[in-house]
Design a protein around this nucleic acid. Structure first.
Lengths: 134, 134
DNA sequence: CATATTGTATGATTGTATGCATACATGCCA
DNA sequence: TGGCATGTATGCATACAATCATACAATATG
């Protein structure tokens, strides 16, 4: 039953487009979570697994995991592993956090040459099915 | 005739998400070309214009222009300017990139307890204020 | 011709990213 | 208890990204 992490591991790829490795890892792992390949509570691939599989330094992988944790996407537990955070959600959507996330997202969109309007539309479309109450 | 170049200049934005500045410039300019905002033969914004407008070093801008030229997207002519090549290469960041970014962003939003609808709104608000396209 | 504009180039400097090696700290389990 | 897996943390070396400052070279224009 290592399948989830294995599948994620296999999906990871690195390209030489000038984008730092840790950024590529950060984004791809985030995507795996966003797609539901990794669900809340699931264990992430081990830092060492990623390090060995992709032949990337452990510190580099850690850099990516570190940012994911600071972003609240995952939870790091030494000696145990890394796990996808369960959305603590409902209520607490501090406007500040929302605004901050919006800015960061916009920056990423700009970096990738993505149209913000198009992006906003897709976000709404993807969010709709799971829309819930408060 | 504060033309297309001006509009492209205004559309350029930089964010500190770990993505190198020259990559952000490269992708955004590529997208402008791919979208037809800048058409074959059109003059690109001057390196110095970009440098001053975005408060980025001239060498950094050059790095981006340099890669665009090697990619065959533009043509550099000293003393004259930079121009869009006749057969502009097909866009590297079409709909797929947008879809991926949307998923990644949703994962972050869920982790932070941010309402996707609210987020989408803020993204639009942050992106739009400038150019009312006419 | 002189001048402004634009691209091209260099050296010094600071910060970051990456890799390699080597540990330490914590949690799990036999 | 001991061993193992996992996250955490160094130090050192190399390469790249970015800024600043200062120029040079080609083109256009007056």
């Amino acid at each position: 039953m290592h399948t989830c992490q294995q599948r994620v591991l296999d999906g990871l790829t690195l390209g030489g487009t000038g984008v730092p490795i840790y950024v590529q890892l950060r984004e791809q792992l985030l995507r795996a979570i966003g797609e539901g390949v990794l669900q809340p509570g699931d264990q992430m691939p081990t830092m060492r697994q990623v390090s060995v599989t992709l032949k990337v330094d452990l510190n580099t992988v850690r850099h990516a995991y570190d940012e994911l944790e600071r972003a609240g996407a995952i939870r790091l537990e030494r000696g145990r592993g890394s796990f996808v955070s369960s959305p603590p959600p409902k209520d607490a959507a501090p406007a500040a956090a929302s605004e901050d996330l919006a800015r960061r997202t916009l920056a990423l969109a700009a970096a990738a040459g993505v149209d913000p309007a198009d992006l906003a539309e897709r976000i709404l479309a993807l969010a709709e099915p799971k829309d819930k109450i408060s």
